[in-house]
Amino acid sequence: MALKELSSLEKFLGLKKPNKYSTQGDRKVPVLQSNSGPGLVGLVTIATHLTQEAKKPDLLGSSAEERAVVQQWLEYRVTRLDGCAKEDIRTILKDLNTYLEDKVYLAGNHISIADPLMYYGLHHIIMDLAVHEKEKYLNVTRWFDHMQHYPIVRHHLPPVAVLRNRVYTSGHH
């Protein structure tokens, strides 16, 4: 899973030459193999490194504050989202829905590395949501749909159907 994601990320970043990855430990933490010295360990470390490698520093945030927010979401992804308990999913979606109410992207006014990484991490969760739940977390759904319409983001993942017109109009916001 994480390895496919990293290869998608490479494409998103426009990196031509694929890197070699392996995993370590029970949680299958990704490792970027390097020819010289020890590899880079962990999704956040690797993603940050790849972005710098691709010379797209704006994707890490274009101001000090934005860079902090990007890092916050990368951290959120690995500490809160990955491997979260089933009962936590609703809380995560609820929080994210509130956060995205006044935002199109997770950090700043343009796409950053946080967006595709959160999209990859949330994909299996959104896939499993029922229609009325997608409506309940409307801002998450809108953001998710926007992400999956970036052809460079959605490489290895199937599209998720999103309804434009609400079915359960009496439901939540």
């Binding site: 409307l138 759904t141 809108r142 749909d145 970036y150 309804l163 434009r164």
Partner: peptide, 11 residues
């Protein structure tokens, strides 16, 4: 705009 990012399409 409830369900949409931009007015037409996704860009």
């Amino acid at each position: 705009l409830n369900t949409r990012t931009f007015l037409v399409g996704e860009r």
